[in-house]
Design a protein around this nucleic acid. Structure first.
Lengths: 361, 361
DNA sequence: AGCACATGTTGAACCGTTTACACAGGGCGC
DNA sequence: GCGCCCTGTGTAAACGGTTCAACATGTGCT
């Protein structure tokens, strides 16, 4: 039965190491050493102390320990949102690996707002976490680079390892571990898959300038067209804003409203966009894959539900790798660059193209 | 240009409040008071200090502050998994409200394992977070109650407010804020919806004994049958293990393998189960809603994709309310009980039943 | 001129832990 | 019997903030 120490005014307060020391009849140093387990100690003393710990229900104070120079057992992660499946899966990987190493996770969300991201990092500097993992797509303009580089150096000075996850390096002189996945290769494979089925008019849905992830995927799309000797029509690249289902619906619907259909296949920049576009096509009586072929990107839950052929990203592996590398590096401020592979997952959303090279109708 | 203090060996180290004080030519007490903003101070001093803070890129050390008796600005949350949509949405609500209040979130995951949950709480006690929010379904046996009650009191003693989110109270004498949603009412509404369409043989998919959430939903199902004067057939309640898609598929598939179909409608305990069951039905050539009507529970992403009528749970509101109530209560150890409403969301998965009362065939 | 009083600032104690350093006592070789 | 190492323990000084009590300084009142 744990008994709580009563302070002067009768309110219970958590037991401290001093209480344990008094209870066990030893000094605080002895208690500390026995609990840390890294110093020689006599079995008799040890059992006395452990009993006191149990009886008083003592847990060490993380703040005091942190102050005393022990790096806190925590990993910080900054994501756009925790309900966006990609971020959630990366976060899951981070949590798994962190839990395995006995670490807690400190999570900050940004809603895609750069200022909120920087504010979160600032708060995390105060926490002195072992690692600060920034995940996801970003618009890396010059001002951002400047500020983030400063934060990177500040984190290194505070002893925290910065990790960029699915985001390009900040520059050669900025200390950070970078864990990326192969966007361009995945987009190349997806586009090639459609091209091999005979499609030549492939709509790219969700282009977005300035953001690294969409740009890499567009690059893969174009490279595949070039490799197959299919002419590139910029008119087939549709710009999108947010990477959500509704936006996919909007893009496809507006496209179909604006002009006759001039494509036989769609490469959606991610599965959510694909799901939205699919809905807009269905409203027009167009079915997948009979009338229109489609490939997505991400291989997240909606893909399986709608039988979508898509590109698999090792979401959780990204998170796990980020934590592993960060905890491995002794000296914060390490630099490293890892690229994880992607691959295509074939389901039932692509049919051979039997129509005209320039499209149906 | 922030300049970092160089320690003896040349390595940069983060600036401390002493550095700021020296740089500004005042005492540390003055710096502390100006930064906390709660004491009177002269404008001239203030600007001197603020300039020093900027120039040295000073951020306060959360551990030191925590040690000095200021409650850390953080909220802890324990969930089953961060990729399970329900938990993710609740967590999103927690994050939103926490971010609004300038708090970081400390997240622990359990994978549904009670020991890991208790271990996470133990770690969180060390952190002295303002609130510890436990979310989700649980199997509250007596041993669990005992231990959790002990933890609740320990948290209260440490000044942290315990919040149970979507989980029943631990007992009258255990200090905790409880935020639940109306499982029974939602299940009643869903079942009534099917009954009103003329269905009398309604399969309940995903019963699970001992767990609070499934039990409340079964209770709502039975109450609706009783209210409509429809006899209750225990043979229509199918037991499930985990609340995932695969399990829904398994249950429906085994049911259809085992005996002729003796139901015209399905009430799935959640949307994931519904999605899996739908797949198994489709493999048998049974379509929704033409051949079988179906209602789910949760109103999470898969539901919209498969046009599923379902019961809406205020996931994010649960998280927001938990944080709001926890931060509101001055004295940790407050007790409160809130019940949030649910309502049915009608999509396209229910048809009027035109067959026999006892089912088709 | 003397006093009360508000305003700003400071020195120092304190929070709970780790750890460098000092030291006690026992076994051992000389 | 003496010095030595070895093992285990204690003392006290950090760590970086907050805050209480004390103290200057300036202002208005008698």
């Amino acid at each position: 039965m744990p008994r709580r120490i009563a302070s002067g005014d009768g309110k219970p307060r958590p037991a401290t190491i001093k209480d344990v020391a008094r209870h066990a009849g030893v000094s605080v140093a002895t208690v500390s050493r026995i609990l840390s387990g890294t110093y020689p100690n006599a079995p008799a003393t040890r059992s006395k102390v452990m009993r006191a710990v149990r009886e008083l229900d003592y847990v060490p104070n993380a703040h005091a320990r942190g102050l005393a120079g022990v790096r806190p057992k925590s990993v910080a992660i900054v994501v756009n949102s925790v309900i966006s499946p990609h971020y959630a899966h990366v976060a899951q990987g981070v949590h798994e690996e962190a839990a395995r190493a006995g670490r807690l996770c400190i999570v900050g969300t940004t809603g895609g707002d750069l200022e909120r991201e920087l504010a979160a990092i600032q708060l995390m500097r105060e926490e002195h976490a072992e690692a600060v993992i920034l995940v996801g797509n970003i618009n890396p303009d010059e001002a951002y680079r400047e500020r983030m580089a400063g934060y990177a150096r500040a984190l290194a000075a505070a002893g925290s390892q910065l990790v960029l996850c699915g985001r390009p390096p900040l520059g050669p002189d900025v200390p950070a571990i970078v864990v990326e996945y192969d966007n361009t290769g995945g987009a190349f494979a997806a586009t090639s898959h459609l091209l091999s089925a005979g499609h030549k008019r492939i709509l790219f849905l969700g282009r977005r300038f300035g953001y690294t992830t969409p740009e890499s995927r567009v690059a893969g799309y174009r490279a595949a067209l070039a490799a197959h000797g299919v002419p590139h029509d910029p008119g087939l690249e549709v710009d999108g804003a947010r990477m959500v289902r509704r936006e996919g619906y909007r893009m496809m619907r507006e496209r179909l409203d604006a002009r006759p259909r001039d494509f036989t296949a769609v490469f959606a920049i991610n599965d959510l966009i694909a799901a939205g576009a699919r809905e807009a096509l269905r409203e027009r009586g167009l079915r997948i894959p009979e009338d229109v072929s489609m490939v997505g990107f991400d291989d997240l839950p909606p893909a399986a539900d709608i039988d979508l052929t898509t590109v698999y990203i090792p979401h959780e592996e990204l998170g796990r790798t980020a934590v592993r590398l960060a905890l491995k590096s002794e000296t914060p401020g390490a630099s490293e660059h890892v690229l994880l592979g992607t691959h295509i997952v074939v389901r039932d959303s692509v049919c051979p193209n039997v129509g005209e090279a320039s499209g149906p109708d």
